[in-house]
Amino acid sequence: MIGAGTTAVVTGGSSGIGAATASLLARRGCDVLVTGRDPAALDTVARHAGARACAADLTEPGAAARVLAAAGEVELLVCNAGVGWAGRLEDMPEADAETLVRVNLLAPVQLVRAVLPGMLERGRGHLVFVSSIAGSMNVAGEAVYSATKAGLDALAASVRGEVTGRGVGVSVVVPGVVDTPFFARRGTPYARRRPRPVPPERVAEALVAAVERNRAEVFVPPWLRLPARLRGVAPALTDALQRRFT
């Protein structure tokens, strides 16, 4: 799925994980289209990576269709775009809550609905969803963000069940804290002692490996799988340990 002749679309490609992924895919020979809301930053990424750029705000009607029209026949879709908001749910403006749902969850639904029929018809394709450990753990102050990432996990699992045996792979990449502009953009810096941030290039490498090996789920760093699984069977214990060590 990764190499010369593969057309890949990477959302949220103007910085961080998206930019690192676009660069790695382009180096591997893919025809990469990066999309994001910042035209200048996007053009810089595209120029350095040897990719194409299509600036778009995925919350706007018709934006997803415009991106896919510019891409052509998509064989690899990386749903990476995401926004955050930190604070108590009771203080969260309704408009911000809607934006998180539209960008983090609704946009991937729209993109997948658009590219999936072609992938199934060709019997070839791969969908990647960049989730977050926040979708699996108790993250106070990030209720809506966590909910959208948990929804993304469920979306990926359901789509995987629908396409199994039909030539289309589905992978979920679950990063912990990544050293990107995400926290600055949400307006609240990352202040926890653990887990420590990892570079976006590490996530990009794990993402590409997941596609090549058709892995359903990868955690970055890998040890995050343990607390995520533990919370599934012992939520109270996991929450107590999380409060103690973060």
Rank of each mutant, 00 (worst) to 15 (best):
G141K: 06
E212T: 11
T7V: 14
R113F: 05
E94S: 08
A191I: 12
P39E: 15
S136H: 11
A140I: 07
N104R: 09
V109L: 15
G82I: 06
M1S: 12
V211R: 12
L230C: 11
G176L: 11
R213H: 13
R27F: 01
A184Y: 08
G141I: 00
E94T: 14
P197D: 15
A63V: 13
L120M: 14
V177I: 11
G5C: 09
M1A: 10
V174A: 04
V130R: 03
F245A: 09
V32D: 04
K149Y: 07
D31K: 12
R160T: 14
P221H: 07
R229L: 12
V174S: 00
A8S: 09
A49H: 14
M137K: 01
A55S: 10
G84W: 00
G161F: 10
V174M: 07
L33A: 06
L100Y: 09
S132P: 04
H48S: 09
A55T: 07
T11K: 08
V211A: 01
E98G: 04
V233R: 13
V168A: 04
P197E: 07
L207M: 02
T148V: 11
T246S: 05
T188Q: 13
R215Q: 12
L155G: 00
N104F: 06
L100C: 09
V173L: 04
E90T: 14
E90L: 13
